[in-house]
Write a protein that binds this DNA or RNA. Structure first.
Length: 95
DNA sequence: AGCCTTTGACCAGCG
DNA sequence: TCGCTGGTCAAAGGC
């Protein structure tokens, strides 16, 4: 479970036949936070894709000391796809 | 005590 | 109308 600075609660996991990948559903632990996160990976592949949905409506919980950039850092991935592993996975939005 | 994780079933939209 | 998929919720157990 990759730590992005926020805590998530897994509320489901299903195998998407459409893409032949396992998808895990995570939700922000904060109730006032409508942010959601979906993690999918292929069975037998080290790289996984993290899809952030929604946006956090509260500052960072307890990471990063002296800067709310963490909030933007997590939001910058909003509705985007974050790739882990990089094994053949391209890096979108190379800012 | 609180928190987290896992599985099954249900529901809705589509062709 | 049916079957299918994708997405979400709930309960229990362990540390």
């Amino acid at each position: 479970m990759p730590e992005d600075g926020y805590q998530w609660k897994k509320y489901g996991q299903k195998f998407i036949k459409n893409i032949q990948k396992i998808r895990s559903y995570f939700r922000c632990r904060d109730k006032r936070c409508g942010a959601k996160k979906k993690v999918e990976w292929q069975p037998g592949d080290p790289n996984l894709r993290v899809v952030y949905d929604g946006a956090h409506q509260h500052g960072s919980p307890s990471s990063n000391g002296g800067g709310q950039d963490a909030d933007g850092a997590a939001n910058r991935y909003d509705l985007s796809t974050q790739y882990f592993g990089g094994a053949g996975a391209p890096t979108p939005q190379t800012q």
